Simulated assay, not measured.
Amino acid sequence: MNIKRKLDIVVISDVHLGTHGCNAKKLLNYLNSIEPKHLVLNGDIIDIWQFNKRYFPKTHLKVIKRIMSLSANGTKVTYITGNHDELLRKFNDTEIGNISIVNKLLLDLDGKRTWIFHGDVFDVSIQKAKWIAKLGSWGYDMLIILNRWVNWYLQKRGKARYSLSKKIKDNVKLAVKYIGDFEKTASDLAIENGFDYVICGHIHQPTISVKTNKRGTTTYMNSGDWVENLTALEYRLKRWKLYDYTKDKLIPFAPDEELKDMNIKDLIAAITIVEQPEEE
């Protein structure tokens, strides 16, 4: 019997369900390995920008089903909307059972003021020219597909995997500057408003770092993504940890028994019905 890790809070973002780049199977393994009191979905969970009814694999639906099951079993689920799932913003402040949809989340964690939001509000390309941002998103997805073929070839040759997009991000000055500016803007605003922690997604750069300016100090965190980095933020025993699926020890968890033989129609039916916990 697999023992699941009990956590106070888990933050994941930028899953991009419905795209070729999404690592849904690995995310499902992770979700099956934990029992969080509070699961925060910090934007871009479902990629509505690139949604295509011809491509939404069974594993992607199983991720949604697993989140619904966690909710039914008592986990509080907060869905913070991002730019790729912005259509859900019309349902802001909606609550259904243990699930709520919001634009941002404010928490008091053991006396520490915490501000969680996706981060696309800082992206000028999205605010001013959405079509450019969508074109860039399509190009990124194509790059991920190409990268998978490259890594398949490298593994056949016995060589290490390689990330094309990470190489671009690390070496293109404009990309490096954008990431630095994003982190500084979020941190400066958090300090100005008296937050001890500020947590974002959006830029796919997982990190935990202390930021200081003339006005004070805050801890900036980014939950990364489930396209390349496969990371999450975990809070337990008054401490934050950056979980890395590829580096941290993880016992392979099989999907829930109820999911093994479930067909696509059953899964769609399951995720459109809000489950309630059974009375004891």
Score class of each variant (00 low, 15 high):
G136H: 10
G136A: 07
S137V: 10
S137D: 15
S137Q: 15
S137L: 11
S137W: 06
W138H: 13
W138P: 04
W138Y: 09
G139T: 08
G139L: 12
G139D: 12
G139W: 04
Y140Q: 12
Y140A: 05
Y140P: 03
Y140I: 09
Y140C: 10
D141R: 14
D141P: 01
D141L: 03
M142Y: 02
M142G: 02
M142P: 00
M142R: 14
M142K: 12
I144T: 11
I144D: 00
I145R: 15
I145D: 09
I145H: 04
L146H: 05
L146A: 12
L146K: 07
L146C: 02
L146E: 05
N147G: 03
N147A: 08
N147T: 15
N147V: 14
R148Q: 07
R148Y: 00
W149L: 10
W149F: 04
W149P: 03
W149A: 12
W149Q: 12
V150Y: 00
V150K: 13
N151R: 14
N151M: 13
N151L: 05
N151T: 07
W152P: 00
W152K: 11
W152E: 03
Y153C: 01
L154F: 05
L154D: 00
L154E: 06
Q155N: 14
K156R: 12
K156E: 05
R157A: 02
R157G: 01
R157D: 00
R157Q: 11
G158N: 13
G158T: 14
G158Q: 14
G158D: 08
G158E: 07
G158V: 15
G158W: 06
G158I: 15
K159W: 01
K159A: 02
K159T: 01
K159P: 00
K159I: 03
K159S: 00
K159N: 05
A160Q: 14
A160Y: 06
A160H: 14
A160S: 14
R161Q: 13
R161Y: 07
R161A: 13
Y162V: 08
Y162I: 14
Y162M: 08
S163E: 12
S163Y: 09
S163A: 11
S163Q: 13
S165N: 12
S165L: 15
S165E: 07
K166D: 06
K166G: 01
K166C: 02
